[in-house]
Design a protein around this nucleic acid. Structure first.
Lengths: 346, 346
DNA sequence: CTGAAAGCGCTTACAG
DNA sequence: CTGAAAGCGCTTACAG
């Protein structure tokens, strides 16, 4: 580790110093059993002495392989995606891959630009959580047939592998939980109707209500951007007319926490006079006040799963596209409160 | 965009199809004005027709440049780092660089491994938020003299650029705010004594207290892992003996939110009978219940700044290492409550 | 304005 | 067990 000059130390430098060919040094690097033990030791000492750093890009170019996987998500400041990215990166690192990060900020145009840029770095595969409004054909034309894509979270009809959360079933579980506690006027709060995950969650909610003989009223369906702040701002919409809902299934936890905050600001208490269920089980859900009843999606585990699926696809490029459904689990905490006492809020 | 075979389309393919040399096609790609307009048009049509994707790795190898920057952080599931990473990625993408992600999970050993792996991908520079207990000499030996490093958040005596938060001043601001509200028994809550950012924040806290003629008692100094959950568990330590503190400066927002939750669990209300100030201003701070008074570090802006600093270093490899201090700003919200009424909680 | 040639740092049959 | 040679996909002086 001499305080060497700026020039990169290459295989050729090591070969020269050891009076060997580059081929032999390369064999040492790749751990070939062909090399004589003494030669190996000499080379390894010299590698260390000169502070050699393997140039994986050059090797990959020659071998026609890639050791990178691109991860394209909406935005890391959404904790769900941060956890997801964390899981992806962890699993990829374990498998010897490096993660190339890209954020779309939920913009279809930025998504095209980001993908185009990442593709130039020759990723072995892509994990893509599509921006809202993505056009499958356009994406497919951009990515081409050589790079496998694992789509996460939002369906995309592009013939790629798909890892989906069980949105429908999760929302059913949430709604049935509230019905079981005696609620009859249950809102579906937050999210945009045109997002596929939101549509699926609403469908599960409607199905559970229908089975209980209930048709949701317009006032029970409140849209909002899927952020805490926006959700907090919309709370008034639930209470414009009596009788107002007594409970809400929320599009996600961010929205649920916003709803809780908005209720507090209006002098109501989640878990006491209004029951709230979230979706995602982000880390804050367990420690918010009150702790949030929610549907666990375990984004970190989903990240690991996405990494595993894309790596598996690299082994079997010609297998049929797979659809994987990640299970949803109800986590009961305080925000959904206790059973409604008969005759309480009518 | 023909549904082409699996083989990669290269410059050579385009050159052949256009009956030109690879050199000319390369000039088209790089936008050289030398090429005749007609030739350019022909080439560009063919590039599109065959779905050509530029292989930046090969070009970089030949040109001896790199278009990647490595970002090594503790963990994306910490929202502070998620925001930071988001800002880094955004600014790097704008400058035409791609972000290589690495997480240490606060382990010095994983940090060595992650860096070694990332270095093999030949990053132009590294943005490193060092794991606790990092050894500067060991890191320097690993990275070598060729790759510039921008250290973020925790000081590291390795002769690299350093972007630091103004921890000392921030904690002073927080403490003076509480003193100004009439508090005299002010705790410093959370964090580990051996982390440099924690030491600096404590020093600012002590300095402000000293200036008010106050010496902190042992009971006022509570250590905890810097997470919400751990912080919530330690709350009892503040109240083991009377008189207990009436306010706390927290190591960071995660800890502050944990403290708020712990207080609630013990029947106390942050902002009413106990004043809480956080540090970082993570997104939740503004929307928690109660909203958190805190020191804004604006991690996304810090991320952009870190990216700018490392890119600037690439232009001036031989300039002296720079230390940049990012300003701290007090954000007053509800968790620090109103002025103590004289004679209230003694 | 275009082409022939060399080379970035590595690997991999193929000889010996 | 080791070496000479070709080649991955690109760029860049240098000629013409």
């Amino acid at each position: 580790m001499t305080a060497s000059p700026r020039r990169r130390v290459t295989l050729t430098d090591i070969a020269k110093a050891c009076e060997l060919s580059r081929a032999t040094v390369s064999l040492v690097l790749r751990g070939s059993p062909l090399v004589h033990a003494d030669t190996r030791a000499r080379v390894e000492a010299e590698l260390k002495r000169q502070g050699y750093v393997y140039h994986r890009g050059a090797a990959n170019l020659r071998r026609n392989v890639s050791s990178a996987v691109a991860l394209v998500i909406n935005d890391l400041s959404n904790p769900f995606f941060a956890e997801f990215a964390s899981g992806v990166d962890e699993a990829l690192a374990e498998a010897g891959y490096v993660t190339l990060l890209g954020s779309t900020g939920e913009s279809v145009e930025r998504q095209q630009a980001v993908l185009a840029s990442l593709l130039e770095h020759d990723p072995a595969g892509i994990i893509l959580s599509p921006a809202e409004g993505s056009d499958a054909a356009r994406l497919h034309a951009l990515v081409g047939p050589r790079t496998p894509v694992l789509v996460f979270n939002r369906e995309l009809d592009a013939g790629w592998d798909f890892l989906e959360l069980d949105n429908h079933h999760g929302a059913r579980l949430a709604t049935e939980h509230l019905l079981g506690l005696g609620h009859r006027r249950i809102a579906f709060y937050g999210g945009h109707r045109d997002s596929s995950s939101c549509r699926q969650r609403r469908a599960g909610y409607r199905e559970a209500l229908a089975q209980a003989g209930i048709t949701p009223e317009p006032q029970w369906l409140v849209e909002s951007a899927p952020t805490r702040l926006e959700a907090a701002r919309q709370v008034g919409a639930l209470f414009v007319r009596d009788p107002a809902p007594t409970a809400a299934v929320c599009y996600n936890d961010a929205v649920a926490l916003g709803l809780v905050a908005g209720l507090t600001a209006r002098g109501r208490r989640a878990g006491h006079d209004f029951a709230v269920v979230g979706f995602d089980d982000i880390p804050e859900a367990a420690v918010s006040a009150p702790p949030l009843t929610t549907i666990a999606a375990d984004p970190r585990a989903r990240g690991r799963q996405a990494a595993a699926l894309v790596l598996q696809r690299l082994q079997h490029p010609d297998a049929a596209p797979a659809r994987t459904v990640a299970p949803a689990r109800l986590m009961v905490r305080d925000s959904s409160g206790h059973a409604l006492t008969p005759g309480a809020p009518r």
